Simulated assay, not measured.
Amino acid sequence: MASVFTKIINGEIPCYKIAEDDNFIAFFDINPNAKGHTLCVPKLEVNKILDLEEALYLKLMQFSRKVGIALEKTIPCKRVGMAVIGLEVPHVHVHLIPLNDMKEMTFSHKVSMTDAEFKSLAEAVQKNL
């Protein structure tokens, strides 16, 4: 059964896309810890990050870095935090979270954003890629 991320990749579920190439897609988390919380996901459905082939793992980190730099240029923050947890969706994904406070990295702190805010922010980040 396809993961929710595979369904997003296949266009079956909408997302607020930030970036995409042949191997990866980046989109906003719809239940964000902070404004700009982004997920970088390989298009190949693999459950655990350490099960990725080394070359794909390294490319995922390069892709995530590029997206993270664009987030930093767009969203006022002290830094962009990175986390790989993988318990909630069995498909590798890197969380990039613009941080101003440690609580934003706890996954128990959430912020609300409207559809218009997500769309506007996605356009702003895309301009900084």
Results as ranks from 00 to 15, higher is better:
residue 84 V to P: 14
residue 22 D to L: 11
residue 48 K to F: 13
residue 71 L to Y: 07
residue 86 G to L: 08
residue 72 E to P: 01
residue 52 L to E: 01
residue 50 L to N: 14
residue 45 E to G: 08
residue 45 E to Y: 01
residue 67 V to F: 10
residue 58 L to R: 03
residue 29 D to R: 11
residue 81 G to D: 05
residue 90 P to A: 11
residue 64 S to Y: 00
residue 53 E to N: 04
residue 22 D to C: 12
residue 52 L to Y: 02
residue 33 N to V: 12
residue 26 A to Q: 08
residue 29 D to G: 13
residue 66 K to G: 14
residue 67 V to H: 06
residue 41 V to N: 08
residue 40 C to L: 07
residue 75 I to V: 12
residue 26 A to K: 08
residue 56 L to G: 15
residue 26 A to L: 04
residue 60 L to D: 08
residue 85 I to V: 12
residue 44 L to C: 09
residue 68 G to K: 04
residue 79 R to H: 10
residue 72 E to D: 01
residue 79 R to K: 15
residue 41 V to H: 07
residue 39 L to G: 14
residue 70 A to C: 06
residue 53 E to T: 01
residue 53 E to Y: 04
residue 87 L to P: 00
residue 43 K to A: 03
residue 34 A to L: 10
residue 90 P to S: 08
residue 55 A to L: 00
residue 28 F to Q: 05
residue 49 I to L: 11
residue 88 E to L: 14
residue 67 V to C: 01
residue 51 D to I: 03
residue 70 A to K: 11
residue 70 A to F: 08
residue 76 P to F: 04
residue 92 V to W: 06
residue 22 D to K: 12
residue 78 K to W: 09
residue 79 R to G: 02
residue 47 N to I: 08
residue 65 R to M: 01
residue 81 G to S: 12
residue 74 T to A: 04
residue 56 L to N: 14
residue 28 F to P: 03
residue 42 P to A: 09
residue 73 K to V: 02
residue 32 P to F: 00
residue 47 N to Q: 04
residue 38 T to E: 03
residue 88 E to P: 06
residue 82 M to L: 15
residue 34 A to T: 01
residue 26 A to H: 02
residue 57 Y to T: 11
residue 55 A to S: 02
residue 69 I to A: 12
residue 49 I to E: 09
residue 43 K to T: 08
residue 83 A to K: 03
residue 46 V to F: 13
residue 18 I to L: 10
residue 53 E to S: 09
residue 18 I to Y: 04
residue 81 G to W: 13
residue 85 I to C: 05
residue 46 V to C: 13
residue 65 R to A: 04
residue 38 T to Q: 03
residue 78 K to R: 10
residue 40 C to G: 05
residue 83 A to P: 06
residue 21 D to H: 13
residue 70 A to P: 08
residue 60 L to S: 09
residue 70 A to I: 03
residue 39 L to D: 11
residue 67 V to P: 11
residue 47 N to Y: 10
